[in-house]
Write a protein that binds this DNA or RNA. Structure first.
Lengths: 153, 153
DNA sequence: GAAAATTGTGGGAAATTATGGGAAATTGAG
DNA sequence: CTCAATTTCCCATAATTTCCCACAATTTTC
């Protein structure tokens, strides 16, 4: 599984093309791996996966039989909603589908944020306010995280 | 088994023809594979299978003995009854039978959604509301998924 | 600090894909 | 058997996407 690192500011051109900074590009497993999957994030952002990691994620979903229940089917749909294949062109850009640009409110200035095996794509301004947190809230969040992590076990 | 990726907006023309986006078409196992099966979905949508995967599905059904119960027989009958062979024409379109269009409430704007080895076909508006979920419901669904996945084993 | 190499940005042309319409073929009813 | 209706097949145009080239900007090297 890939583990991306870093945070990168970049630009979308008016055709909706996002050029991937070479430092990030270098982190992809294979030079040959030039197909990515973009998806809507739970927040107002997009998420990039390598094809391999996307297939791993969805394999977990697909292992569960659709006959089982309507809720299972619904969950699968919600989880995979918006997925799009994109190809990296020969100058390291991907064309982001218009629908997804709208969803995430992406205009020109965007931020790519590594998050495990995923890369989040945020509008710069939204990202700034998402990160805008004071120390009280941060420690509340940490407590919550700790609690829920242990519940999950 | 095929694993399709992506969500695609497309249009039905007034003859009921659905053109398959090239990105999706490229995911079919063989260029020669130009016969698909459309069936009713459990929700108000349709489901596309490759011929091969459809045969797998029906094999699973037929593995269950008809002697077992009337409900088994009834389910098999109803499930199989909606299935239709459709052929991909030379510009990558399939003609969806009118009965199925009605069943899924398909008008002009539709969405094709990859779901494992199947492709779901939704009316755009219905699909949007299917995906419209608040965070409380989402976490309930996630829990349910987690639970049922483990039950299924 | 200047030159070279790499990377980022923009735009245009070519190829591919989508879409609509019409003609030919097939089917079914009378 | 004939006519009407539907279906299949094919072609033309519109729209989109992909590919390519040129230049700008940044980084690296000497």
């Amino acid at each position: 599984m890939t583990a991306f690192i870093g945070e990168y500011n970049c630009k979308l051109d008016e055709k909706g093309r996002l050029s991937i900074p070479s430092k990030l590009r270098g982190q992809f497993p294979e030079a040959a791996c030039n197909i990515l999957i973009v998806n809507r994030g739970f927040e107002k952002c997009l998420v990039l996966y390598t094809k391999e990691d996307w297939l791993d994620e969805t394999a977990k979903l697909n292992a569960v039989d659709d006959f089982m229940s309507p809720d299972i089917r619904r969950f699968k749909r919600i989880f995979t909603n918006g997925a799009n294949l994109v190809q990296i062109d020969n100058v390291q850009r991907v064309l982001i589908p218009k629908k997804l640009l709208e969803y995430a409110g992406l205009k020109s200035e965007v931020v790519l944020v590594a998050n495990g095996n995923k890369i989040e794509i945020w509008d710069e301004d939204l990202y700034t306010s998402e990160l805008n947190v004071d120390s009280t809230e941060l420690s509340q969040l940490a407590q919550l995280f700790h609690k829920e992590r242990n519940q999950g076990k």
